[in-house]
Amino acid sequence: MRKQILFAAFLFVACFSLAVTMELWRGGMTKDAARSDSTLAMIFGEGRTLIANSFIAKADAYFHRGNYPSIFESQRVEENHMAEAADDDDSHPEEADHHDHSEHEHDAEHCTDPTHSHGDHDHEGGHSDANGSDWIERFGKHFRANKHVHLEAGEEREMLPWLRLSAEVDRSSIESYTVAAYWLRRLGKPEEAEQFIRSGLRSNPQNPDLLNELAWLQFESRKDFVRARNLWHAALRRWVESEGMKEKPDTTVVSKILRGLIELEMKEERWDVVLKYLEQLKVFSPNPESVQKRIDTVREKMNEGR
């Protein structure tokens, strides 16, 4: 019996180590790979991140009603989504903010937009090869959830437990807080959204992404433009402090903040301020032509006004 327990423990440790190693290896392939001085701290930290990420992936799978690519397919899916994201840049300001919430999260916002529809295309194998490459794959499709559909009409709430668990496992998982807060807002639960973001801010003080999400909450749900502006300004300052001096700063968050500010100032019809933010956004945007088009439009509006 003792031998069996030891063997089971060994297997568990081996599997865990393998998973952590793979995650580290995968992380090493991306630009934001974790860096730490202590190997032990890194492994434990990565272990938590691994679990938290799997919960986020689970939430994403829920959003797609269980139709979710495996790690063997996700790379191809990511490539597709990145291409889609680039195409869509700046056309839907707030929705674009959530492109990087997770591999697929931008789909969530797209889905809420009646003008954008994925239709019932296949989600397997990176949105391609609808019939599968062999009979096992083709046959297997009859049993899998294989239609690309999204939760709707309040069903999005089903994702929330996984996001909450993800945040509880790894308090530094900003994505868990922002995605959950976004959906809570959409589900008409601004109180819960604010509470959740604030708990995230307690663990990650002054995080620009969380401040940005809180600003959106004030702007969209509470219609408190003054607080929203203050929060976005604070987020922008915080971003400059943390990323501004870096050689290769993370421009995703600053783009989101700028988009928020642009939205806000457009609502208030402060076109010269809008122009200022659009010019800044142009610098960070992967699609500056699209931003330039908006700048031109705003200039036209300003001229018309005069």
Partner: peptide, 23 residues
Amino acid sequence: PHLEFFDFRNRIVHGWPPVDWKY
């Protein structure tokens, strides 16, 4: 043996319609 054919958990959890009996 591809055991994943027999795993209907996702279908049940997410309320997918029943599979055609011939499959």
